[in-house]
Write a protein that binds this DNA or RNA. Structure first.
Lengths: 261, 261
DNA sequence: CATTAAATGTTTATACAATAAACAGTATAT
DNA sequence: ATATACTGTTTATTGTATAAACATTTAATG
């Protein structure tokens, strides 16, 4: 039997605990009372809780309570909390994709991809807190990977090269997403405190980051470039754009060099 | 009073709980019995536990027990577990830096930086699991940032540009570090299982990733490029190198364009 | 149909987790 | 000498994931 001939059920057994659920590979049970909940409902509620109060607020008790059930009832649907977290992660990746662009617009396509995946982090600040235990295997997550590959379809690249580029670009999106999220959080919670005291981390760092010990960082701390002050010349958007354009330039150069050969 | 004139004690109060400890800003207590432990000792033991059994094995009880004390005794040194985690993170950044290179070797310098920070993830697989709550503020962590800025010192870049570049490069290092760690983990634990069954995630994905749903990902899954098979043409090192060279090319292009103007 | 088997959500119980509060002992400042 | 501040411990509280046993409900099977 070749590997391609696995039945969904067989494939499900090879996947980690929660992943099979995400693929809808669990046959609905035949006997017993009708279910009063559904996996989708549980995951949606967990996402709702996390969106509101952060990932640490997501306990089996909290999620079940908000649905009007006991904590233990969730285990009839989901084998463990880790599985629930994986399902939440995949659910956050269930977003509409923009329409396909012509292959020559690959730069714009990759830009859209980065901005779109950054939005996942903004819409679900907890997204980056879920530990990554391996390569993405959830269906929605893989659709995101597929999306990242889409702009590359017309380029003369090997498969490993394509994979490396998506890795590069999506890693960049993750970094920016987390950063953006941190700033959003700071704005939400810290602004008033900062205004009241007139001091914040920057002030502390200015006192601690001595030029002898940190010769290269020191000027950036003093000017506020490190802590991201001066919103005129530095908003997160421009920060994201800068790095992204460098990456795209690097990829373009690679394509040109490859053509020359 | 200008911001630069903060005393260490004043600065300590502005920093989050654990950070002040990392900077050694806590005056040793005058009265009372001699301390039988030290913060460094506690953090070192916590790191040891995490290196051996993962971050989830690090409990106040476990760390204290291994030192021959009770869990509560740790709170005489460290205000909370979150603070301990921050100190662990900073401790992992306490590594020797390579000697400075001449400014024109900035590419090689950045390469060294990326590889060096990736090593932190390899030496401490738990490092990436500690949630990032904001910009780095620990002393060792800031030394790493300073290191990243060092190769840029001779280049004609604005401060925000330098910061963006370090962000770009260190984010890439993080992504690669996590990936490398995942692979190391898989090799440690999963190899035997994979050999026995002859099947792994790849097999499941081959059955699930249909060309209709995943038109661009499908060929990569089939060829094994997605799951990273074929070690000859794809080892992690080459993967890291590929993305890194694109990034460095992009930066170089930026520098050239800036000179032209 | 009657019976069996499987699945439901709940209750109860276990093992840990972080950490607050009260405690007796110890070193220093006054 | 005494008050004060600090030590590490004991005890207790609250919250966590989840295992096991339970009565109940539905469908499959004789």
């Amino acid at each position: 039997m070749s590997k391609e001939d696995l039945t969904p059920e067989e494939a499900a057994k090879l996947l980690p605990a929660g992943a099979a659920l995400g693929w809808g590979l669990v046959k609905p049970p035949q006997r017993g009372p009708k279910r009063e909940m559904s996996i989708d409902q549980i995951v949606a509620k967990a996402v709702e809780v996390a969106d509101k109060d952060g990932i640490q607020a997501v306990s089996m008790n909290r999620v079940a309570s908000e649905l009007g059930f006991t904590a233990m009832s969730l285990y009839r649907y989901i084998p463990s909390k880790d599985a629930l977290l994986l399902l939440m992660q995949d659910a956050a990746c269930d977003i509409p994709l923009p329409p396909e662009r012509p292959p020559q617009e690959w730069r714009e396509g990759l830009r859209e991809y980065v901005m779109g995946t950054i939005d996942i982090f903004r819409n679900h600040p907890w997204y980056g807190d879920i530990p990554i235990l391996g390569i993405p295997i959830g269906p929605n997550n893989l659709r995101i990977v597929d999306w990242g590959l889409r702009p590359l379809r017309g380029l003369e690249l090997g498969e490993y090269e394509k994979m490396s580029i998506v890795l590069l670009v999506s890693g960049y999106a993750r970094t920016c997403g987390m950063l953006q999220r941190d700033i959003d959080r700071a704005v939400q919670t810290g602004t008033s405190v900062e205004e009241f005291s007139g001091l914040n981390y920057s002030a502390a760092l200015r006192a601690l980051v001595k030029p002898e010990q940190f010769p290269h960082l020191h000027p950036l701390v003093m000017s506020g470039a490190y802590t991201g002050e001066n919103e005129e010349e530095n908003n997160v958007g421009s920060d994201v754009d800068f790095g992204l354009e460098r990456i795209l330039d690097g990829i373009e150069l690679f394509l040109e060099r490859k053509k020359e050969r």
